[in-house]
Design a protein around this nucleic acid. Structure first.
Lengths: 144, 144
DNA sequence: ATTGGTGCAAATCCTTTGCAATAGC
DNA sequence: GCTATTGCAAAGGATTTGCACCAAT
């Protein structure tokens, strides 16, 4: 149980939780750490498997709830990779995703879209926009 | 069985199917017609229910396969509205979607993003880009 | 006559729910 | 001590198989 790996990042989460009146718990710290170690785009199931050695009793619903919480806090982003699985990305800067429609592989797209104008464009009819996502679907190298 | 409702559109599908060596079948014609009549963003289940009166024996897998086929042919677009359901949109011109993260409601976003540059940006690593999608997640008026 | 499409039923898999027990504040 | 969070087990649904039959070419 390394406690000095990414101290600053953990502190971010702690601060955000405290300021929102939420509790600091082991699953929350462990899941954020795993999400960042993974580096890429991971499924809830993947996180669940990787966190289990550290927290043997952790449950699947907790993983889902926590990932969604991290998204709300702005520490992660959802990637709608298709019906097969929702993925979570620890990169929070604006970038798109290329998703293979056959195997579900995801790659980052360098193209950066300005989020602000999009969020504003979506504000019609009382809709409160929270985040924007850019998806390109197609076939990856291996699946063609 | 009205055969003169949208003759031109049906002809489009027939031509595309024939030129691709695929067969012209009742489910394909009926599902495209329903998708266009619905006008908005519909789920496979919705299409299934609406097409049944006309084709009582149609099956769920056929609806899924056909909708995916229409996407491949460029006559429909997928909308990754979340884990709850993939939606299909008969509008094929570039536009984004505002998706409520709570109730799943979908609205069109006037903001038009140029697809071409995005598709090109995604072409790295042998990835063959097929379509781009712009999603804005948030809370709709009713769910706030 | 070929074989791509279809229907059927069931399996698979992701995600969420309800509720009692626990742990953070 | 309150109450948000958790774990558990199970339900809920969307999507996809496998296979036999049928119908478009």
């Amino acid at each position: 149980v390394t406690t000095d790996a990414e101290p600053a990042l953990t502190q971010d989460l702690v601060a955000l939780l405290r300021s929102g009146g939420r509790r600091v718990t082991s699953p929350r710290l462990a899941i954020l750490r795993e999400l960042r170690q993974a580096g890429g785009h991971v499924s809830a199931h993947h996180v669940y498997q990787r966190v289990r050695p550290e927290l043997p009793g952790i449950s699947v619903p907790t993983v889902y709830a926590t990932l969604e919480l991290l998204v709300e806090l702005g520490l992660a982003r959802r990637v709608e990779a298709g019906a097969r699985a929702t993925l979570y990305d620890s990169r929070t800067d604006p970038h798109g995703h290329a998703v293979c429609r056959r195997c579900g592989a995801v790659a980052d797209i360098p193209a950066s879209v300005e989020e602000e104008p999009l969020l504003r464009a979506a504000q019609g009819d009382g809709f409160r926009a929270e985040s924007a996502e850019l998806l390109v679907r197609g076939l990856c190298c291996a699946c063609r």
